[in-house]
């Protein structure tokens, strides 16, 4: 059985009337890249703050490396690297000084620290910017500096709270590759993001939070299996009558279809040979069609289906 790095049990955190975490249960195992997904206000950052003992909680327990975490659990904190959602660096210190400062909060030995700082600079690709002040860095470089400050002391557990917000694709790729490299080197990673494709790309296990609760968790395959959508078929069709649409809707495994501006989208709930069945129908009815392509469900589909985020956001707006 894999070693549990983080165990959250029945965690409750209230801000006056608002319940930010509602009996949250989560487990992160050693060597995982664990993704935390959830709409705004779902409790991701609150959960991370509780793991880091930045917040007091009302009920439940948070164990890190098998021990209850407290604000003065400095031995446990020594093994945790943190990259907070907002960039937390000193504007008046250079790139190298910043990394040295944060690394120095964990490592006292000068020689060892110097080595760690150099490695962090190389890891983040900041070699040419070591004497730069943060205000001179681009958004992507600043995020990389933030990460370098968080991982320089070689922690066993790294918590990254939306580290790629407002970052260009090149920097994002570099950051994601870096995270995977850290994981390969032995670090357990907790990763939160709004970008589904990132989580899908790097996370070995994912939990979806909504209203402070974990509504689903598992590998991406397990999550995809949980939702109704098994396959999406897109077809370019010039014209379809309402009767024809009804007939397509009644085909086996088809549970939802939309037809707009000559593009038909058919959602099928699992099953096999869905495309063949639909193409047979079009041949029989002699309906001409253009481009056809199919999509397997993405994490975005899982997220939307489980949290209903779009609908709720519209209602809130």
């Amino acid at each position: 059985m894999a070693e549990k790095v983080v165990e959250i049990e029945n965690l409750v955190k209230r801000y006056k009337e608002l319940v930010a975490l509602d009996h949250l249960n989560l487990t992160v195992e050693k060597g995982e890249i664990f993704g935390l997904l959830g709409p705004n206000g779902s409790g991701k950052t609150t959960a991370i703050s509780c793991i880091l003992a930045l917040l007091n909680f009302d009920k439940g327990s948070v164990k890190v490396f098998g021990e209850e975490i407290q604000p003065d659990s400095y031995r446990i904190k020594q093994q945790i690297g943190v990259v907070l959602q907002n960039v937390a660096v000193f504007e008046d210190l250079t790139v190298q000084e910043n990394i040295d400062y944060f690394c120095g909060l964990y490592i006292k030995d000068k020689t060892e620290r110097k080595k760690c700082v150099e490695e962090a600079i190389t890891f983040a690709g900041l070699e040419d910017f070591r004497k730069f002040l943060p205000k001179k860095l681009s958004g992507g470089l600043l995020r990389r500096l933030n990460i370098a400050c968080g991982i320089a002391h070689k922690p066993k557990l790294i918590i990254l709270d939306e580290p790629t917000v407002a970052v260009d694709p090149q920097s994002r790729n570099r950051i994601l590759e870096g995270i995977q490299k850290l994981n390969r080197e032995g670090a357990t990673i907790i990763y939160t993001s709004h970008y589904m494709e990132e989580v899908e790309q790097i996370c070995s296990r994912i939990a979806i939070l909504d209203k402070g609760r974990c509504v689903a968790s598992g590998t991406k395959e397990e999550l995809k299996a949980m939702i109704k959508t098994g396959e999406k078929i897109h077809m370019e069709v010039m014209e379809l009558t309402p009767e024809q649409l009804e007939e397509i809707q009644s085909l086996q495994h088809v549970y939802q279809l939309t037809y707009d501006k000559g593009m038909l989208e058919i959602r099928c709930s699992g099953g096999k040979h869905n495309l063949v069945r639909i193409l047979d129908y079009f041949q029989q009815k002699e309906i001409s069609f253009g481009r056809v392509y199919t999509e397997l469900p993405t994490l975005n589909d899982v997220f939307l289906e489980i949290t209903g985020k779009e609908l709720r956001d519209l209602a809130e707006g």
Binding site: L52, Y74, V82, F90
Partner: peptide
């Protein structure tokens, strides 16, 4: 005021340096 800045303060509190 720099050390008191919300994010830096939180980042420092996450570290293993004691209060």
């Amino acid at each position: 005021i720099i050390f008191n800045e919300k994010n830096l303060d939180a980042r420092n509190r996450c570290s293993s340096m004691s209060f």
